[in-house]
Amino acid sequence: MPAKVGIPRSLSYYQLFPLWKTFFEEMGAELVVSGPTTKKILDDGVKCCVDEACLPVKLFHGHVADIKDRVDYLFIPRLTSISKGEYICPKFGGLPDMVRTSLHGLPEIISTEINLRKNKRNSLKAAMEIGHYFTDKDSQIKSAYKKAVGCYNLVKDNFEKGYIPDFIRPGKTAETKSLEKDRNLNIALVGHTYNIYDSFVNMNIWRKLENKNANIITIEMVDEKAINRNARQLPKKIFWNYGRKAVGSAMHLLNEKNLDGVIYVMSFGCGIDSFVCDLVERRIRRTTDLPFIVITLDEHSGEAGLDTRLEAFIDMVRWRCTDKK
């Protein structure tokens, strides 16, 4: 019987799942992914997680609780850095320890450190360590790793062309996305992947915007070369992977004449967002006249508050569009 590897549908899932999936399947493991976020998962997470953590980290705990009794291994890598010269949120590095101390009755956790800050080749080293849980054959691990990276890159490239991959598609959106000329409104939705694509956490912001005939563009739909080109114009390098992407993609989109507004989605209490959101806002206010709004997501944010803000925002965007004509 193949070993069952559990992956929480949370945090890095929204970015790296194609990589994990291909790799573990090539290793002959069976994947168990927790279900889409529900109130129960949220409640479970909030109950066991430390109080000071942000909502996404609490949710991660809930997703672990959802699958922990159904798997042989839990895959919670210690993510320190996923790109050369950059860090990610430090909580990602502490996840395996947080989960271990907060939840009981856990299966074995695969918590290999992944740190590409100094050297990209460290990812192969990490893959070998993970692979040895399943096989002794180094060649098998290497080929699985290659295939996984290939698959990840393909998904990422397609995403940049506007094709939202199945594993994170929020709602029914299936068509290719881009800045459409004939579409009513083009709205950039900037934020962490785990907020933007988890429709429970963001209270169906996609459906709400699409019902108002808005076409949504996210960071992942912007060509990474364009992101980097724009991010390099900043006076100082942003040392967060997400920060570079958020600011770079926002700067790129601001130059597109079809963009009608920017919505920044942030988690309450997020350290990185508190910097990056401000950077993005300043860029927008100083260089353009575009409508901009920050939506803060938290455990107790009511849906009515979001509805009012979105409605008013779309009213504002449309009011300005008709005024220009």
Binding site: D289, S301, D323
Partner: peptide
């Protein structure tokens, strides 16, 4: 600004 809503904010929690 110029007769249209330019920006708004609402208190949070």
């Amino acid at each position: 600004k110029n007769g249209v809503v330019y920006d708004f904010a609402m208190n949070t929690v």
